[in-house]
Design a protein around this nucleic acid. Structure first.
Length: 598
RNA sequence: GCCGACGUAGCUCAACGGCAGAGCAACCGCUUUGUAAGCGGUAGGUUAUGGGUUCGAUUCCCAUCGUCGGCUCCA
């Protein structure tokens, strides 16, 4: 129900509660203005609440939200029935004569093919209205029986934001009020707790607190500066993945950041991707573009020699940094940036190798994601969009079927996004659920019918003839930036030991213990543990507090007793006290955790 | 890009037409400490940038840049 559209949700009491609460909110809002000043648009339930869009004579303030919420509770207390009526299109037009957005919806419903939210539907719908108290809205329902069925202690208005009418930036900008509604006050409280928790885990905040990365105004928006600690997490991530790729039969390639305009013309990027590409550089009269993707380079490497069917499959992997223009308003911490590094690879294979290649890459992807602590996956299979699709429909069948069967074999839950594929081929996207149950898209596995043709890729078959290879793009973590962001939020900055930038802090209690601490540190470093000595003139309590807030997995306290015993006193960031431990068993324990990646 | 909110010390925030402040962090002392903040001191600012209004602007107005919440899009 992440998209708020699952069957069971559409059918639930919660859905009705939210839908009805949206209507009550619309009543409260329209009451604030003269009837001819306040225009209402649409107000559907969404995954964890509802919204309603308004066209109002002035901007709403947070104070307005409070008074709207107060008025909503009064309306709810009125116990007004939600009365449904079915109208003809003309009757509806008359009723909503001074509501232009409703008129547009009615015209759409009357024409058929779309519901009131602009979603395609098969039949021409009945036009119905719902009335509670003084407010009547065009609506297909369903609703609760009366306003008394909505718990006034389980609703909350969250924020106001701008939203285009019908999501179309050429249409008017409306004011959207987001709210949430639950069955019980406890449910509401739990939801608000989750929002708070999400705020605490926000990678932008954690990134600052743990000194992982920054975005700098002098450098530019959407461009990430990795600090030493964040850089270490990223390096460890990359090292692990590179090793896995090597074991997995990938070859490593490297390609430049810019390429000639003619390359991007051949690849087609200048035709269909130019709006996301930066303006060209002029070098000796030739135009060069910053790369938005790595594919054309890998394709060129493929093409540097005649390939035999014996050479295939070829798997070219690169941590390729690409630059894409993103509109300033969409940039978001590490999750949406303008320069990012994809863990990219391109697979070239014979048609007969394709199903196995898909299996391998899907399995590979899931295993890598599991290594980072993700357990729950949701896959999306995007199929051919007849409106915009390269190649013949039958070309799509085998790859689409191969993708589907791989998902079945892996047992990954998946949904089919009918017609959602990019024009060059079908694809699988994999989303992971994090510790708070939020979904993040990471892996993508995409077929490509276009590039092999445009670059005239070929291999010589057993028959001595030239054949066109299949080409698959895939990124597993997606982008290093985005993945780091997701990882930070998933672990709330408390990275598993193998990824922790600092795995242990040695805390000498007094100055006289510092020398021993440095000796222990040297021993541990020797054993490959990332360790620091906190020899500041602070009290032990302060040092523990700082290490705790930095989410360091091991805090090793050293005082007279430990020196005497040749040991350290071990505290975990979980606040568990392991007591006094000898150095060797401690190192062993840490190393085991690193290997187990826990 | 668009709508709205917001930019004050490294960080979190005060002051809101009349001398720009606190806590934390940094630095310097004192303290030598037993599992989440010891005490004292010092330093730190063209109040994002540029213009305007005013006797006087951090405060009011305009523009630009940036951040945040959304819309749209996506790795």
């Amino acid at each position: 129900m992440a998209d708020g559209k699952s069957e069971s949700y559409l059918d639930s009491d919660l859905y009705r509660i939210r839908h009805s609460t949206a209507h009550v909110m619309a009543q409260a809002v329209t009451e604030m203005f003269d009837p001819d000043e306040a225009k209402v648009a649409i107000g559907p339930p969404i995954a964890e609440g509802f919204y309603y869009d308004f066209d109002l004579p002035r901007t709403l303030t947070p104070e307005d939200l409070e008074s709207i919420e107060k008025r909503m509770r009064e309306i709810l207390a009125g116990n007004f029935e939600f009365k449904r009526e079915v109208l003809s299109a003309d009757e509806a037009r008359e009723l909503f004569a001074d509501q232009p957005y409703k008129i547009e919806l009615i015209d759409g419903l009357d024409a058929g093919g779309l519901d009131e939210y602009g979603e395609p539907i098969d039949e021409k719908p009945e036009i119905s209205i719902y009335t509670q108290d003084t407010f009547t809205d065009l609506c297909r329902g369903p609703h609760v029986a009366n306003t008394g069925k909505v718990n006034p202690d389980a609703i909350k208005l969250l924020n106001v934001a701008g939203a285009y009418w019908r999501g179309d930036e050429t249409r008017p900008m409306l004011q959207r009020i987001y709210g949430t509604a639950w069955e019980s006050a406890d449910d509401l409280e739990q939801y608000l707790w989750k929002l708070e928790e999400a705020k605490k885990r926000d990678h932008r905040r954690v990134g600052k607190d743990l000194d992982l990365y920054s975005v700098n105004e002098a450098v530019g928006p959407g461009l990430i500066l990795w600090h030493p600690k964040g850089g270490m997490v990223r390096k460890l991530t990359e090292d692990f993945c590179r090793d896995e790729h090597e074991k997995g039969g990938y070859d490593f390639v490297y390609s430049p950041h810019i390429g000639k305009a003619s390359l991007w013309e051949t690849s087609g990027h200048l035709d269909w991707y130019q709006e996301a590409m930066y303006s060209p550089l002029d070098i000796e009269g030739q135009q060069y573009y910053l790369k938005p993707m790595n594919c054309p380079f890998h394709v060129q490497i493929f093409n540097t020699r005649t390939r035999s069917y014996r050479d295939l499959p070829l798997r070219f992997a690169e941590w390729g940094t690409v630059y894409r223009y993103e509109r300033s308003g969409v940039l978001h911490g590490l999750l949406r940036v303008r320069g990012f590094t994809q863990d990219d690879a391109h697979l070239f294979c014979r048609p007969d190798q394709m199903p196995e290649e898909i299996d391998r890459v899907l399995n590979f992807s899931l295993n890598i994601l599991r290594a980072f602590g993700f357990e729950n996956f949701q896959a999306y299979l995007s199929t051919r969009n007849p409106e915009k699709a390269a190649g013949d429909p039958e070309d799509w069948e085998a790859p689409t079927e191969a993708l589907r069967q791989s998902l079945e074999r892996e047992g990954v839950p998946y949904v089919v996004d009918e017609g959602e594929a990019v024009f060059y081929g079908p694809k699988i996207d994999i989303k992971v659920s994090d510790a708070l149950g939020r979904e993040w898209q990471l892996s993508t596995i995409q077929f490509d019918f276009i590039l092999p043709e445009r670059f005239n890729l070929a291999y010589v078959g057993e028959d001595g003839e030239e054949h066109r290879p299949y080409m698959i793009h895939r990124a597993l973590l997606g982008s290093m930036e985005r993945f780091m962001g997701v990882l930070i939020e998933h672990h709330a900055g408390a990275f598993p030991v193998w990824l922790a930038p600092v795995q242990a802090v040695l805390i000498p209690i007094a100055d006289r213990h510092a020398e021993y601490a440095r000796e222990v540190a040297a021993t541990m470093k020797e054993a490959g543990v990332r360790v620091e000595v906190d020899d500041r003139g602070e009290r032990m309590n302060a040092k523990i507090r700082d290490a705790q807030m930095q989410k360091v997995p091991y805090m090793l306290v050293i005082g007279d007793r430990e020196i005497e015993a040749g040991a350290v006193s071990v505290r975990l960031r979980s606040e568990e006290d392991l007591g006094s431990m000898q150095i060797d068993p401690l190192i062993e324990r840490i190393q085991e955790e690193i290997i187990a990646r826990s």
